[in-house]
Design a protein around this nucleic acid. Structure first.
Lengths: 246, 246
DNA sequence: TGTACATAGGGTAAAAACTGCGCTAAAATA
DNA sequence: TATTTTAGCGCAGTTTTTACCCTATGTACA
């Protein structure tokens, strides 16, 4: 592929090559996908993890991953892993980054493409519990197998940025939510305190909130109104900011 | 990997596995990196492309790519490709996305991780011309080999977003540039008209511009002041926006 | 040399957005 | 019934953005 050709600029002088022959000459590597599945519960950002069954990492926490099958594209593999590990389907899933340090896996070189997903813990009761599948508060996780700490950090950063620019928070909440719940999501993920009244104004001004005529129940204080988020309207009116902002 | 284990929740009951054995059981795939190298010249966004030497795509435009070598991580591979194809090194390079459709390469399954890079055309005279390496205006490219049109589109979108949030534009300009040149970059990439005076104010208000005491020369109109961008100061003072913005 | 023309660069006024905070209402708890 | 906690309305001061004004300074060309 990289031999010097010194052709004279005309493509007639190309040394023609056959795609199949070229591909056959490439070294191949094992490929996996890992899913970083975020949820929100008890005012804390959580992530779904299992315990490794590799002797090298026995009992250490790992992300939900598996190798990519032949002829399976990465998106499909990620959806499959999520389904196999948790039983869930129809979940928002997004590619974040591909990690490729040659020594990241003790069993040899493995490259992994990482997907992140956000879902509502209450809506997705865990049906499977293999390898101690459990929700873990993100800020209490100390050690993980492989480079999964790095991956989790990367995805948490990604989430922080993402949630400010896209209405992801609503995936972490019940369909009907109070503004307090919404604010809790932002405060927990961004790790800041926001002014309640300004937050309310800001969110309302987007125009994407729908007032249900219901109120919170079983709360230990004055119940707030419940709202839904109008995803359809959002898709139509997506803001298209143009400018400089750094 | 995916057999049901139905363990009772204690990690002692894990069916322990060896990492090397697991990895050996994974199917492997050929992996490549592709570089989308953007430049700016004559008020147009351009991208560095070569012509394919595969019989299946003979003469069609392609990105700069190569297979990933054994034990080479993706970042290193991307830097190597750039160096081999263009002779350049020390270029800003960022991973954008991994493309994995099983039929994206006519020679069989190949997964590619795409990197994007931005550089100043004037600073990087092309030394190599293999496969007709040339700058092509992005908005005049019609057909490409493989899924490279899709990849280029993805990277152009990425660039549009990226340039608004990070001082990338300065990589596309000479070290000393006029505000007009800077505005031209933004207008070309974002495809908008911006108000000259407001643009100037906005950029100046960032505080990252350094006034050189030089002026433009050889321009057909009143010369503007030349500035440099203080990358060091930017790294220190990076804005850390917190809030909702969608 | 002078006039047309293009862009540079400094400004301002009004609109819009953001911020901090005061206030009252409603529910739970003791 | 008093206390505590949060909901929800509103406002005033500040900052940011927007849409323009104006003049200055260069080139091109009659």
């Amino acid at each position: 592929m990289m031999e010097s050709q010194h052709n004279n600029g005309s493509n007639r002088s190309f040394q023609e090559k056959d795609a199949a022959a070229i591909v056959k000459s490439y070294p191949t590597v094992p490929l996996t996908v890992d899913c970083v599945i975020f949820g929100f519960d008890e005012n804390a950002l959580k992530v779904l993890l299992i315990k490794s069954d590799l002797v090298q990492f026995l009992g250490k926490l790992t992300l939900l991953g598996d190798n990519v099958q032949s002829n399976e594209d990465l998106d499909t593999a990620a959806i499959r892993v999520l389904k196999q590990r948790t039983g869930m389907s129809d979940v928002y899933l997004e590619q974040v980054h591909t990690f490729s340090k040659p020594d990241r896996h003790p069993g040899g070189r493995v490259i992994t493409t990482v997907y992140a997903s956000l879902l509502n813990i209450k809506h997705h009761e865990l049906l499977l519990h293999d390898n101690e599948l459990k929700w873990h508060p993100v800020n209490q996780i100390t050690e993980m197998a492989f480079d999964h700490s790095l991956i989790l950090d990367t995805c948490t950063q990604w989430l922080r940025k993402r949630i400010q620019e896209h209405p992801l928070a609503f995936n972490l909440l019940p369909v009907k939510f109070s503004l307090r719940q919404l604010q809790n999501v932002y405060e927990a993920i961004l790790n800041v305190k926001l002014d309640r009244r300004n937050f309310r104004k800001k969110v309302a001004s987007t125009g994407f909130l729908c007032d249900t005529d219901e109120m919170e129940t079983h709360v230990t204080h004055r119940p707030g109104k419940l709202y839904t988020f109008d995803f359809k309207l959002y898709d139509q009116k997506k803001r298209n900011f143009i400018g400089i902002d750094f």
